[in-house]
Amino acid sequence: MAVIHMDFFSSVLGMTSSVSIVMPQDVQPGEKLPVLYMLHGLSDNENTWLRQTTLEYQLSKYRMFVVMPNVHRSFYSDMAHGRKYWTYVSEELPKIVKAMFPISDRREDTFAAGLSMGGYGAMKLALAYPERYAAAASFSGALDIHAIENLFEGSEFTDIFGDAAGTQEHKDDLFHLANVAAKSGKELPALYQCCGTEDFLYADNIRFLYHIKALGIELTYEEETGLHEWGYWNMKLPRVLEFLTGAAKKDAVTT
């Protein structure tokens, strides 16, 4: 596998941004490979998945690109007082990497996954743009923005989500996005969610699970004894990659 650390200028962010990419080093001429957008948590960056898990080793079993952007503490949102990280991740970044690397643009070849804040980001991509993603996975996701204000100090929470963060139908609320997706009539991505039963976000994950199930959206959920920590996420990593690639095969057959 090849690991690339890339800096480039983002017009959306108005500054230089960084991304790490893992890819096969034997890509053949004309070959277009699947892509997984692997999203980091609140206190991490574009390199943390590589530093804390066996991701590179696990990827040796698959032929795909993994793109890991840095969004700082933005919660993958167009911040009320800050940068437009949602537009960056959902619109600009895919265009940039597909222009530079042999990445497929087919829905059945496109996935998102992440931990904690990144689990939120992965579900947000899947629910906001179901026509673009075959599958998405959340590791111990911070899935309920109405319940996480205590994670922030000072004005950081409202800097991200704005003064109306507590209202229903907020643009960044996954529960609202799930309602819209369920009513859209679109084929939805295969969704996977896992969380340790001792995780401080466990109750939020169960609340999101019940909401998704009540809407009739299919979601694979798994839980085990575990905390909000890298040992649990590394343990679940092979299962998530297996789920995503399995969903891709199923999507290819049905389409």
Rank of each mutant, 00 (worst) to 15 (best):
L151F: 14
D144N: 08
A181G: 10
L201M: 09
G216D: 07
N205D: 09
L237I: 14
E198I: 05
P130F: 12
E153W: 11
E153H: 14
H146G: 06
K213S: 09
W230M: 05
G141P: 04
G119D: 02
I160C: 10
T158E: 08
L125I: 11
A203I: 14
G154I: 11
E169I: 05
A190F: 05
G185Q: 11
F101L: 15
E131M: 10
A182R: 00
R207P: 03
D105G: 13
M117N: 04
Y221I: 04
G226Q: 02
G118A: 03
N234T: 15
F101D: 06
W233C: 06
A128N: 13
A128G: 14
A178V: 07
C194N: 01
T197G: 07
R207H: 06
R107G: 04
A112D: 05
G196H: 01
H228Y: 07
I148P: 00
I103C: 06
A113M: 07
L174R: 03
L177T: 06
N234A: 12
K213A: 10
D159L: 12
W233F: 15
T197M: 10
Y192P: 01
G154L: 10
R207I: 03
Y221H: 08
D204M: 00
E223F: 03
G185A: 12
H176A: 10
I217F: 01
E222I: 13
E218D: 12
G185T: 11
E153M: 13
A190I: 04
H146Q: 15
K171I: 13
H170P: 05
D105C: 10
L209Q: 07
E198G: 11
F139C: 02
L188T: 04
G231Q: 15
K213V: 13
Q193C: 02
G162H: 02
S140A: 06
R132V: 11
T158M: 11
F152G: 09
A126L: 11
S104R: 10
M123A: 06
Q168F: 12
G226A: 08
Y120D: 02
E156K: 15
G162P: 04
R107H: 04
C195W: 00
K183S: 12
F200C: 06
A182C: 09
R107W: 02
I160T: 10
S138M: 09
D105W: 09
I145S: 00
S104Y: 09
L143F: 07
N205G: 05
G216W: 06
G119K: 00
A128Y: 09
S138K: 03
L188V: 08
I217V: 07
L227Y: 14
D199V: 01
A203G: 12
F101Q: 07
K213W: 08
A126Y: 06
W230V: 03
I160Q: 06
S138P: 13
G226I: 02
P130H: 12
A182P: 02
P102N: 11
T220E: 05
A181W: 03
A147V: 03
K236D: 04
F200G: 07
M235K: 15
F139W: 05
R132I: 11
